[in-house]
Amino acid sequence: MLSRRTVLAGSAALLAGGGQAAAGPVRFGIIADPQYAEAPPNLTLGRYYANSLDKLRAAVATLNGEDLGFVITLGDIIDRDVASFERILPIYRTLRHETRFVLGNHDFAVAPEHLGRVPALLGMEARTYDFALGGLRFIVLDGNDVSLFAPPPGDPRRALAEDRLAAAKAADQPNAQRWNGSLGDSQVAWLEQRLAAARTAGERVVVFNHYPVAPENPHNLWDAARITTLLGRQPHVIAYFNGHNHAGNYAERDGIHYVNLHGMVDTPDSSAFAVVEIAGDRMEIRGHGREPSRSLTLKAA
């Protein structure tokens, strides 16, 4: 597994900087859905699981040539089987940047006895967390919180997930899919608290999650409307990045840029990842491979 030192290296420096960190742009690398498994490709879905090792090596080589504050992967590091982590995580160790992870649904496609180990395998001290860099507060959510696959068998969140999915189906929501998830009430309360703290500190906020919430899509969180309503009331939230929908997507709502990155696992050899730079009233996304580049104007807080 990644050592805690590797994953959290530099965290103290980031947090010490808080919202008043040094001037200059904030730059970070971002990857979505490597979804590695030592398995033949699924030609129906267009997923080439084993090829992700070489794609990730090439992405790391490119990102190591950049001046970045951190590199974050937006979930689905693996497709299945806890042993897959042992093959892909050594590639992440070759990053010279701080390495951070978001939990995805496929990261929990492991035997029940391993479900509770997944965050630790990724060096994560908590399934949700936040950190500050250069006047920005980055908030990492766990969209698997209330789902049919991440909580251990018998956990009451599984029963709640069944209820939420049934309600979504009754409302004929396109995201009423068993492979989606939602946030528990305690996580939403935590998110509200971190948003309030960031506003008090004068920090702009970027949110990371595995699941999209906008625009409407079959891959969205079951409680997407609750999250977009909450974020839309926050004048200091500027962006929300996610994976999960491998085709990629984009929306702007309430001045917030909702950016869905393309999945790295798709296609035999073309990759997908990006470098993001935030400075002043601009967010520049420089895409690599299938990931498009975007030049976006940020709202004033």
Rank of each mutant, 00 (worst) to 15 (best):
A167D: 14
Y92E: 11
V102F: 05
A168G: 13
N64F: 07
V71C: 03
T62R: 15
V110S: 03
Y92A: 04
F138C: 09
L68A: 04
I77F: 01
A167C: 05
F101I: 03
V118L: 05
E125L: 14
G154W: 04
P112W: 06
D185F: 06
V71H: 00
A58E: 14
P153Q: 11
W179A: 07
L95W: 02
G75L: 05
G154N: 07
V140E: 00
R100Y: 08
I88W: 03
F85Q: 05
R93V: 05
A59D: 04
D155F: 06
G123K: 02
D142S: 06
R164L: 15
P152W: 04
V82P: 03
A111Q: 13
A171L: 12
P152G: 09
T73A: 12
G65L: 09
V82T: 11
I88E: 02
V102I: 14
R87C: 05
D130M: 04
D155P: 10
G104C: 08
L74C: 11
I88G: 04
W179G: 08
D145E: 11
L136H: 09
F149V: 09
P153D: 13
Y129T: 10
T62Y: 11
A109R: 13
A189S: 12
A170H: 06
P119W: 01
G116R: 15
R137H: 07
I72Y: 00
V146L: 05
G75C: 08
N64R: 10
A161T: 06
